[in-house]
Write a protein that binds this DNA or RNA. Structure first.
Length: 259
DNA sequence: TGTTTATGCCGAC
DNA sequence: TCGGCCTAAACAC
């Protein structure tokens, strides 16, 4: 998906467009097989992101009812605003506004999902907004077998690295150039924990500040914000080596570690 | 025209 | 751990 930085931008975008707006109901595109959702009218929306989850807080303007619609974005989910009469292809959730427009959850591949609840307890703290908890969650669990695996695989484990995805793991590991990304996560972390943890915080923040990664299925909802585009040193770079990991994802890495 | 590829996750073995 | 879920853009021929 969109990874941590893109989720944060998506959440900002939602907050920008729903500000001072009142909604009447939610409907779902029947093409999408996932659950229907609705909420008592009239209501307001506020968005938060944590790692690769988005929380939409819906609040009745007339009663004290409130509920959280928890969403994941899959590979390309995002939000757009549609004015009265406008319809956007591949919209799967419509948050209908009393001005006739709607907030559209657009998701071509339909990998995005939603449900009522709260932050998924199987996902770890957000490295950018809960940095101390993020570090602690790893250090307290470092003895577990999950950390026997190579660091390049463990960086994709959302229980510990919530928000890190396929491009971020490549961009993080390439920035610790003298450590082999194929060694065990435990060994790697024991040696270079603070550099690793800080990169897990700082790279997503950098990408957020420059307006998101340049990704095939994802466009910055605000349009281009920055001309800084060279943070991507590794992912997708033909000068780098790549291999398919056990999850069927391409891992991009420095050719010097090819065995 | 056909094939490969894509930022992710879930559930059936 | 592995296939399945989906569409469309970018390739290959």
């Amino acid at each position: 998906m969109p990874e941590l930085a893109e989720l944060k931008l998506t959440s900002d975008f939602v907050n920008g467009v729903v500000k001072d707006k009142v909604f009447t109901h939610i409907s779902k595109n029947p093409e999408h097989k996932w659950m229907d959702v609705d909420f008592e009218s009239p209501f307001t929306i506020e968005s938060f992101s944590r790692g690769k989850e988005i929380k939409l807080v819906l609040e009745s303007t007339e009663t004290d009812k409130t509920d959280n619609l928890m969403m994941t974005m899959g590979m390309g989910g995002h939000f757009q605003w549609a004015s009265r009469g406008e319809s956007i292809k591949h919209t799967h959730l419509f948050f209908h506004c009393n001005d006739g427009g709607h907030l559209a959850f657009v998701d071509v591949r339909r990998f995005g999902k939603w449900k009522w609840g709260d932050w998924n307890k199987d996902r770890g703290p957000d490295p950018t907004t809960e940095y101390f908890l993020f570090c602690n969650n790893i250090l307290q669990n470092l003895h577990k077998t999950a950390f026997d695996k190579p660091i390049y695989e463990v960086l994709m484990n959302q229980r510990y690295f919530n928000g890190i995805g396929n491009y971020l793991r490549a961009e993080i590991l390439i920035r610790i150039p003298d450590e082999n990304p194929f060694q065990s996560a435990r060994e790697f972390i024991n040696k270079r924990k603070w550099e690793l943890f800080e990169l897990c915080k700082d790279i997503p923040i950098l990408v957020y500040e420059i307006g998101g990664g340049t990704l095939k299925d994802w466009k910055n909802p605000f349009g281009e914000v920055s001309s800084v585009r060279d943070f991507m040193k590794c992912y997708g770079n033909p000068a780098m080596e790549k291999l398919e990991d056990r999850g069927g994802r391409m891992f991009w890495y420095d050719p010097k570690w090819k065995n």
